[in-house]
Amino acid sequence: MFSRAFIRSFSSVQSGTKHTLNFKNYLKLPTGQIGSYFHDVPLSLNKQDKTVSMVVEIGKQTHGKFEISKEIEGNPIVQDTKKGKLRFIKNVFPFVGYPVNYGAIPQTWEDPTFVALEQLKGDNDPLDVVEIGDVKSHLGQVKQVKVLGCLGLIDDGELDWKIVAVDVNDKRASELNDIVDVQQKMPGLLDSLREWFKDYKIPDDGVS
């Protein structure tokens, strides 16, 4: 088991200018070497505390759609593209940009050959995390979160799980232990998130 101090010792290094096609954000290991966000960040699963590592791809209230690249050597975080254009998401009332800190759980994978709910298969990506804490995280940040539950979504015919979690350092972390607590302590949030995930890809003036 890795300590939280060890997890916090991960950092990142950037290549290129943000919001350009040549931008890349690489994981910097505690040794100073460049690593992979997928493979070199420990899962650090603690079943008793229900905590796990999270790699932040998108900070809350931002609009750029970033993700860890499966194709580029070293698996840096890059901005997603569609038809050769950088992807940005529009505001979906009442939220500005992404309503949560969004990212992935390292060392995990949604198997595209495994048939699960509604006869759907995984999306061939790590498990996504929606972190509902108050503090805005930054792209490339590695932190510990408490798992509270999940949302099962269907995206382009694939099963796309969204793990609902809260930063262990958030002021509500001690009060939130499962999805029922989220419904009671943060009423309306889960319903709003479901609607947001339905609507945020609807094309706007930019590329969605």
Rank of each mutant, 00 (worst) to 15 (best):
R4V: 14
I7F: 09
F10H: 09
F10A: 05
V13I: 15
G16F: 06
T17F: 10
T17A: 13
K18Y: 12
K18H: 10
H19D: 15
L21G: 00
L21D: 09
L21C: 00
Y26V: 01
L29E: 10
G32C: 04
G35C: 10
G35L: 12
S36F: 07
Y37S: 11
F38C: 03
F38Q: 06
L45H: 10
T51P: 09
M54K: 04
E57N: 07
E57I: 04
Q61Y: 11
I68P: 03
K70Y: 05
I72R: 10
G74Q: 07
N75M: 09
P76D: 08
Q79G: 03
Q79E: 10
D80T: 12
D80Q: 14
D80I: 04
T81N: 08
K82F: 13
F88A: 02
F95P: 01
V96Y: 13
V96G: 00
P99R: 02
P99F: 01
Y102S: 01
G103S: 08
A104V: 12
I105K: 04
P106Y: 02
Q107H: 08
D111L: 11
Q119H: 14
Q119W: 09
L120I: 02
N124E: 14
L127D: 02
D128H: 05
E131L: 04
E131A: 04
I132S: 01
D134W: 02
H138A: 04
H138E: 14
L139V: 13
Q141T: 03
Q144G: 00
V145F: 05
K146D: 03
V147Y: 01
G149I: 04
G149P: 08
G149M: 05
G152S: 13
L153D: 00
G157S: 08
L159V: 01
D167V: 04
R172M: 13
L176W: 01
D178P: 09
I179L: 15
V180N: 14
Q184P: 01
P187C: 09
G188L: 11
G188D: 12
S192T: 12
L193T: 08
R194Q: 14
K198M: 10
K198D: 10
D205M: 11
S208R: 13
